[in-house]
Amino acid sequence: MYGYIARRILSTIPVVLIVGVIVFSLLFVAPGDPAAIIAGDQASPADVERIRRTLGLDQSFLVQFGHWFSRVMMGDLGTSIFNGKPVTELIGLRLGPTLSLMSVTLTFAVLIAVPLGVLAAARQGTWVDTGVMMMAVLGFSLPVFVVGYLVTYVFALQLQAFPVQGYRPLDEGFWPWLHGLILPALSLGGVYIALIARVTRAAMLEVLGQDYIRTARAKGLGLGRVLFLHALKNASVPVVTSIGLGLALLIGGAVVTESVFAIPGVGRLTVDAILQRDYPVIQGVVLVFSFVYVGVNLMLDLVYTLLDPRIAY
């Protein structure tokens, strides 16, 4: 088992390396000059040129890549061109809100979607099934920001039940933290709920058709027990996979959700950095996101081996 884990971890190294090369070369050829933005609207062209030189932006691709790569190897992601803060610090400041948003969304989504999927599978072909599936399709059909505006209007402006924007760190209390994240999680979670509900239903249908489930039912076990204890456990591999792969979806959605709800997270950091051409930040963030994605999927891979002993490693 440890051999498998080691091999699996090693296999992620080239992936992350490739991401580094992709990201660095993408941004190197990008138009848009950070020096011009830094200098400001009223600066003279000569000022812009001088700033460009002091930032090392006038050097060749290989030189810049070499510098960058050797620093990354030492855990230094560079400093932001715009505010001079270390990229690791910038990401550190923003990680809390994003992780909070994602974990709350994930929890909500799983709590809502899995029972819905199980229900739909158990009542296959009935109006319950059709209803759940229609909702799931609808979940894919609206852009996140439209959902965000709708929930803001109803729950924050009309009912005054939730704040419109902002993030309160966890150490200000669990409730203030959660309170501010409910609306963002609701709008971000739509797609995710749809995804997980569909996968759960499909996986359950497959399992429910198998003999041992019929046997269990025949033995007189209650429907609930059969569904949630026996069937769901065996349907869990695709469900867990979808949670992991959907993470990319969640990160993409977080970019928009964080803008709509003014949450100071990593998603917004990234978009701001892209629009400002803050190269070190873009590179750092995309690397970190890739790490998270690769890491989570690595963990899930390892979890499968625990969930389903039939998978060889």
Partner: peptide, 22 residues
């Protein structure tokens, strides 16, 4: 497939935004 894995581990929307910025 390693290149594909690498591409895939960049969230699609971020990748698209980065490409559009280029």
């Amino acid at each position: 497939m390693r290149v594909m894995d690498g591409l895939m581990s960049i969230p699609p929307i971020l990748l698209a935004v980065a490409l559009m910025a280029l």
